[in-house]
C-alpha cells in the first residue's frame, strides 16, 4: 500500500495498476491463480488439488473448519515451504500471472505479500522499529521518510492514537488487540499489493475487530485482500467472493452472498455456513 495513493505501489506495480484500470468487463483481472495446488506436511496431505482465482481489488474470503488447509494455502502463496522442514508444494500458484516458484528472489516476492497471523506477533523491538523494519530492510534510510511511513501505517491500522506518545516502548509488550493492529501496520509498511489475513480476530476484542474490518473495507480500493476466517459472518460482512475449504479440499468458490442464499454446487457448503457442523 502506498503512503500516498498517487505514488506507485512497488517497483513492478505500474503495469499492475494499468491492468487494473484497463476497461475490462464487469470482472476485474485475476491477481492470484491457483491450479491443482497440493500441500503436504511429510506424508500428510493438508490441501488437495485446489483450483481457484483471486481477483484484483477484492476481499477474497476463505472459510472452513480447523485443519481444512486454509493456512497452508497462504503459506504456499508466499513460499514458506522454502523455510519449512517437511512442507512440500505441488501444482501452481501464480501472482500477477507469474508462478511464485519462478521468482528467483523469494524475499522480493514476500515483500509484495503482507501477512497477518492468527496470534499477533509484536517483534521484541520498539513499536517504531516494528513498523520501520520492512522499509529499512528495503533500503530506506531517510529518517523523515521512515517517520512518515510509521505514522501512516499506524494510522491505517487504527493504532496511531493509542501509541503515538510511546513509540519507543516494546512492541511485544502491547496488549493482544494492539499487537494485532501493530502486525497489520507492519504488513502495510511493506507496501504489499496483496494482504493475507489469517483469522486475525482470534486474539482481538469485538470493538477492535470492527475497527480493523472498517480499515479493510477501505484498503481494498488499493490492494487485494485474502481473508481467512473461521467466522462465517465475518466473511459475509467483508468478502466479495468466498471459498469454502473442508479437509484439504476446496469445495466451493462463489460470490459470498451465493454461499448463504444463492445457488451452490455442494450441500456441505450450505450446511457449514448455516452452522450445521464445523
Amino acid at each position: 500500500m502506498p503512503p500516498t495513493s498517487d505514488t506507485p505501489l512497488a517497483a513492478g506495480a505500474d503495469a499492475d495498476a494499468a491492468r487494473a484500470q484497463a476497461p475490462s468487463s464487469s470482472q476485474a483481472p485475476d491477481k492470484v491463480v491457483v491450479q491443482d495446488l497440493t500441500v503436504r506436511y511429510g506424508d500428510k496431505v493438508v490441501l488437495d488439488k485446489a483450483s481457484f482465482e483471486i481477483r484484483e481489488h477484492e476481499i477474497f474470503g476463505i472459510i472452513g473448519p480447523a485443519n481444512s488447509g486454509k493456512t497452508s494455502f497462504l503459506r504456499a502463496l508466499n513460499r514458506m515451504d522454502d523455510f519449512t522442514e517437511g512442507m512440500t508444494v505441488e501444482g501452481r500458484v501464480s501472482l500477477d500471472g507469474r508462478d511464485v516458484r519462478a521468482w528467483r528472489n523469494v524475499y522480493a516476492l514476500r515483500r509484495r505479500i503482507g501477512v497477518v497471523f492468527p496470534l499477533p506477533v509484536g517483534l521484541p523491538m520498539t513499536i517504531y522499529d516494528n513498523v520501520a523494519l520492512a522499509p529499512r530492510l528495503g533500503g530506506e534510510r531517510n529518517k523523515r521518510e521512515l517517520d512518515r511511513i510509521v505514522e501512516h501505517c499506524l494510522q491505517r491500522a487504527a493504532l496511531w492514537d493509542e501509541v503515538k506518545d510511546r513509540l519507543d516502548s516494546l512492541g511485544s509488550l502491547l496488549s493482544g488487540g494492539q499487537q494485532q493492529r501493530l502486525t497489520i501496520a507492519r504488513a502495510l509498511s511493506q507496501k504489499p499489493d496483496l494482504l493475507l489475513l489469517d483469522e486475525f480476530s482470534i486474539a482481538v476484542d469485538p470493538v477492535t475487530t470492527m475497527r480493523i474490518e472498517d480499515v479493510l473495507k477501505e484498503l481494498k480500493h488499493e490492494i487485494t485482500i485474502v481473508l481467512v476466517t473461521n467466522l462465517v459472518q465475518q466473511a459475509r460482512r467483508l468478502a466479495d467472493r468466498t471459498a469454502f475449504f473442508l479437509n484439504g479440499e476446496c469445495v466451493e468458490v462463489a460470490p459470498t452472498e451465493d454461499l448463504f442464499t444463492g445457488p451452490i454446487k455442494d450441500q456441505r457448503t450450505r450446511d457449514y455456513v448455516e452452522g450445521r457442523f464445523g
Partner: peptide
Amino acid sequence: MDSSGAQASGTFDADRRNA
C-alpha cells in the same frame, strides 16, 4: 489467467537477486 504476454516487465525488475 492472464496470458504470459501480460506479464509486466516491472514485476521482473523487483525480482532481482539484490545485495
